[in-house]
């Protein structure tokens, strides 16, 4: 692979994969919780939570990135605390790129999982309760296996979205090669310099290949899981 790609290209690719993978895996538990709460619980603030989850989908990405900067930047009200207490910061680090990607992908992940939860018949969960299963056990033995295809679909969707995230990322953590320069921001950089078209095109092809591979993987996974659940 190193023969095909220049070190810079390889760097952008591996950084993109790392950022997207972390963004997806780290937000998955929170996404599952939010989806469950939105699908099953009725509480004051339900519609506020719903709006909050969907906000990154409807705001301009640059606005989301700027809000992240205000909140998690070194001087931000969360960012300053993290820096003072733990010496940790998201600003201009690859972890910040992962945070931006996670926030932007969150609505898509929650939506897919929520649809799967709403498709689970609560009567099955009632039946499990009469058989002696407490609520957490019902969730682990009935709800979770039945929504697994939805979780996988949500995770793949979030991963794909994270791979393509541009606006919020470049606003929040800039475009630093080796630290925050992902495939899309690298393409953008090449397009800014004269004669960079050929290099940009190589990255475009790489992006398409990664996207297609992710799609194929998700198809294969969800078909396997669906078959296992339907018992064929």
């Amino acid at each position: 692979m190193t023969d095909w790609l220049t070190p810079e290209e390889l760097q952008a690719l591996t950084l993109s994969l790392r950022v997207s993978l972390w963004a997806t895996l780290a937000s998955l538990p929170l996404g599952l919780l939010a989806a469950y709460a939105l699908a099953r619980w009725r509480f004051p603030g339900h519609s506020v939570l719903n709006a909050l989850v969907h906000l990154p989908l409807i705001l301009p990405p640059v606005v989301t990135g700027y809000l992240l900067l205000l909140t998690f930047g070194r001087q931000g009200w969360v960012g300053a605390t993290l820096w003072d207490w733990f010496g940790f910061t998201f600003a201009f680090r690859w972890t910040g790129a992962a945070l931006a990607a996670a926030v932007m992908a969150f609505p898509l992940m929650v939506r897919a999982i929520r649809l799967a939860i709403e498709a689970v018949d609560p009567k099955l969960e009632q039946a499990a309760a009469t058989l002696g299963a407490s609520r957490p056990v019902v969730f682990l033995t009935v709800t979770l296996p039945l929504i697994l295809p939805g979780i996988i679909a949500g995770a793949i969707l979030a991963f794909a979205k994270a791979m393509g995230e541009f606006g919020a990322t470049i606003t929040f953590v800039a475009n630093i090669p080796g630290e925050t320069q992902t495939l899309p921001t690298a393409i953008y950089s090449f397009l800014q310099v004269p004669g960079g078209d050929a290099a940009a095109m190589r990255l475009v092809v790489l992006s398409v290949a990664v996207a297609l591979a992710a799609l194929a993987l998700s198809e294969w996974l969800s078909r396997r899981v669906a078959a296992r659940i339907a018992g064929r």
Binding site: D121, K123, L124, Q126, A127, A128, A129, T130, L131, G132, A133, S134, V137, T141, V142, P145, L146, R228, I229, A230, G231
Partner: peptide, 29 residues
């Protein structure tokens, strides 16, 4: 709570767990 009443319930619509085999459904309790 329902899970501590030890009351078996046969529903009109069976409500078997679709992701489990018959043997696993029987052993669920």
């Amino acid at each position: 709570p329902p899970h501590r009443r030890r009351v078996g319930y046969v529903f009109q619509d069976a409500r078997l767990f679709p992701h489990l085999t018959v043997a696993q459904n029987l052993a669920y309790g």
